[in-house]
Design a protein around this nucleic acid. Structure first.
Lengths: 113, 113
DNA sequence: GTAAGTAGTTACCGCCAGGTAACTAGACGA
DNA sequence: TCGTCTAGTTACCTGGCGGTAACTACTTAC
């Protein structure tokens, strides 16, 4: 028996691309937080209390580099910064839904039982 | 402004549960390989040539512990071992589809442009 | 007896994701 | 002038993910 599934090589690559962008402990939570609308640094931090400012800052930069979010600086009295999903970031919606659905399913099946 | 999205805490948790199981460089590729049917150690290895036997063995164990796959030993002439998806593993189908779809989309948008 | 194919295991090592703690810097209010 | 809000930055450290190489143990074929 030689190479088993030549077909799946392309499929594998696409899934890996997605995982690379999504990978890590904090990116998914950050994106989910932003699906509820534009938010400031501190607001995201309040949605995800156990992230450190260092990690939040670092992951926001990474997401911005991947064109999933935008960073907008407002010159208001105390300088505020607004983060928002780009269309590409919003296109994660379906994937996030499946992630949540399966997460619930998994918890019911394994942790629940 | 205080806590921003009390709703999203439950959603966040589910997505995190899913990510924890899926996380890492090799689990998704292994599961995808097994969606094409029951396979032996060497066959999976041929589908994913750049994984080392150590990592493959390690990740297969983790997937088995999470009840996503089963390991069956066959006492044939050369002992063979068959890995197969459990129903829970198969329930990843939709999530994997979204992962692939979005991976392609991302590649078109970012790498392509 | 030696090579090749089954399915792994073991030892060793490096890098970086992620955590903690402290610090920065400007503006506002008491 | 001290505390609090804004939004981060910097230094330091640890654990584990993942890589490489070598080795195990059994069977069949040459």
């Amino acid at each position: 028996m030689k190479s088993t599934e030549p077909v799946c090589q392309y499929e594998l690559k696409a899934a890996r691309d997605a995982m690379e962008v999504i990978q890590g402990k904090w990116r998914i939570p950050i994106v989910i937080s932003l699906t509820y609308g534009t938010k400031r640094f501190g607001e995201i931090h309040r949605d995800i209390p156990d992230i450190s400012p260092k990690m939040l800052s670092q992951e926001l930069k990474a997401l911005e580099e991947n064109k999933l979010i935008t960073r907008t600086l407002h010159d208001s009295m105390p300088v505020t910064v607004e983060y928002a999903l780009t269309p590409l970031g919003m296109s994660l919606r379906e994937l996030l839904n499946e992630l949540r659905n399966w997460g619930k399913h998994f918890r019911d099946e394994i942790v629940g039982k």
